[in-house]
């Protein structure tokens, strides 16, 4: 038995914005919701959605963090970003309507368990007032049916709940927008992972 026990989690509370997403307070944070520059290689996409509680009310003080590979399936987890095209980490707090929005590129496929390729996906760490533990989920893409069907993580999710992990593609004024809502409770409760 280890002498060193994990420090317990506590809620992020309602007042994190001036520290973790401080741009609107005139300070520079470590990440924003814009992961790309105009010349970042890959298909530029917007991911937007809303976070809802068990009453169907918007969660106005959630923090989403996303972590993803570049369009070639490379993670920037080496000093200076390694060979990846961008850092692939973003943060966004929800607004009074529970909305969030990220500007990024669609990630490439990344090797998963047993060297099987995973479908393109974005990891999400979600936290909010009222969440005593941060939650992990993933965003998959509805126009990747074939890759999704063979994804080694999606296949661990009961079929009837997989839809909660799949963002829906729309094209708006020439821009590709994926819609991804998160339900913390209720019939459409989003799948959260123990990873």
């Amino acid at each position: 038995m280890s002498m060193w026990k994990q420090t317990p989690s506590q809620t992020v509370g309602p007042y994190f914005a001036y520290a973790l997403t401080p741009e609107s307070y005139g300070f520079r944070g470590i990440a924003t919701n814009r992961l790309v520059e105009p010349d970042t290689p890959g298909e530029h996409i917007v991911i937007e959605g809303r976070v809802f509680d068990g009453n169907g009310d918007p969660v106005e003080d959630a923090l989403l963090e996303i972590w993803q590979a570049d369009s070639q399936g490379r993670y920037a987890d080496a000093p200076g970003g390694g060979s990846a095209d961008f850092l692939g980490f973003g943060r966004c707090g929800t607004d009074p309507q529970g909305r969030f929005r990220f500007e990024t590129v669609k990630p490439g496929r990344v090797p998963g368990p047993d060297a099987r390729l995973m479908a393109p996906h974005i990891a999400v760490c979600l936290t909010a007032r009222g969440l005593l533990n941060h939650l992990f989920t993933r965003i998959y893409f509805d126009d990747e049916e074939e890759a999704n069907a063979e994804d080694p993580v999606l296949e661990l999710v009961p079929e009837e709940r997989r839809g909660t992990l799949v963002a829906r593609r729309e094209v708006r004024n020439g821009a590709v927008v994926y819609r991804f809502d998160i339900h913390l409770q209720g019939e459409r409760e989003t799948v959260f992972f123990d990873v």
Binding site: T11, D53, G54, N55, D57, V59, W67, Q68, A69, Y75, V110, P111, G112, P113, M118, H121, A123, A128, R129, G130, L131, L132, L135, R138, P152, V153, L156, V157, L184, Q185, E189, T190, V191, F192, F193, D194, V195
Partner: peptide
């Protein structure tokens, strides 16, 4: 706040991948 915000379904275990 946890009453309406804490997930009610069990977390789904997945392996730790490169992600």
């Amino acid at each position: 706040s946890t009453r309406t915000r804490g997930p009610t379904k069990p977390l789904i275990p997945i392996p730790q991948t490169l992600t």
